[in-house]
Amino acid sequence: MSDSAPATAPAATRPIRFGIHGSPHLAESIIAAAGTDRATIELVPYDVREPFRPLREGAMDLMIVKYDLYEPDIAAGATVAHDPRAVIVGAHHPLAGRPSVSIEETTAYEAFSCPGDFPPYVWDLMVPPRTPAGTPIRRVHPMTTVEAMAAVLAETRAVHLSVRSLEDIVPPNIRVVPIHDLPAAPVTLAWLRGAELSPEAAAFVAAAERSAKP
């Protein structure tokens, strides 16, 4: 692991509490690739507005994160997966029927602003303030929950720059369209720095990192 997880805690008597936001299928694929017994892991959804609160309060052992973190109290390991980039739109949207789009095309529409305590430096990677060509992305709609986001997308021509794994959870009136000119988001596992991971949790992190495709 890139930031070694301590593994000196006594043997766990409960499942590994694994924090997720968005698709559970991404977490399931990481668990399967690691060869970890699914029965030993409990998926714990976290709120994008307070992504690290459950970890800091001891309600999670590990969590999925995307892109690099610079939180002083949170450690993250090596990349365990990649999540291709996509734009999320309503089924009525002009981009909805496309096989893929350019990030530059999304600038014609309003996007979503950084939610709550979500790290702005990560949001700038997920929903960049400007495209590679320098065109501003208008980040105006408040981001709260996936359900509220879907309601805005269904009622407007707004777009949400996100990842393809959301295909698993968006309602039928929402479309997930690949973005062909943004690199996939790196996915890592994170834990509270200085906290003792159980041997089982540390072994899961190590196995997930070993199983990652280069």
Rank of each mutant, 00 (worst) to 15 (best):
F52N: 14
F52P: 13
R53K: 14
P54Q: 00
L55A: 02
A59N: 08
A59S: 09
L62T: 07
V65K: 03
V65R: 11
Y67F: 12
Y70M: 06
Y70A: 11
E71L: 12
E71A: 08
D73C: 02
D73H: 03
I74G: 12
G77M: 08
A78W: 02
A81H: 06
H82L: 07
H82V: 05
P84A: 01
R85V: 04
A86Y: 10
A86C: 11
G90P: 03
H92T: 06
P94D: 06
S100L: 06
S100I: 04
S100M: 07
S100N: 15
V101G: 07
E105N: 05
T107K: 09
Y109N: 01
E110N: 06
A111T: 10
F112W: 02
F112I: 06
F112G: 01
F112Y: 02
C114T: 15
G116Q: 02
D117T: 15
P119V: 03
Y121W: 08
V122P: 02
V122Q: 09
D124T: 01
L125T: 05
L125A: 08
M126I: 15
M126C: 14
V127L: 12
P128S: 14
P129Q: 11
R130S: 11
R130F: 09
R130V: 13
T131V: 07
P132S: 00
P132V: 10
G134T: 13
T135W: 01
P136A: 13
I137S: 04
V140R: 10
V140N: 04
V140Q: 00
H141R: 11
M143C: 11
M143W: 11
T144M: 00
V146A: 04
V146Y: 08
A148L: 13
M149S: 06
M149I: 09
A151V: 11
L153V: 01
A154L: 04
A154D: 14
E155T: 14
E155C: 00
A158G: 05
A158V: 03
S162K: 09
S162T: 13
V163T: 14
V163F: 07
E167Q: 13
E167Y: 10
D168L: 08
I169T: 09
I169K: 11
V170Y: 01
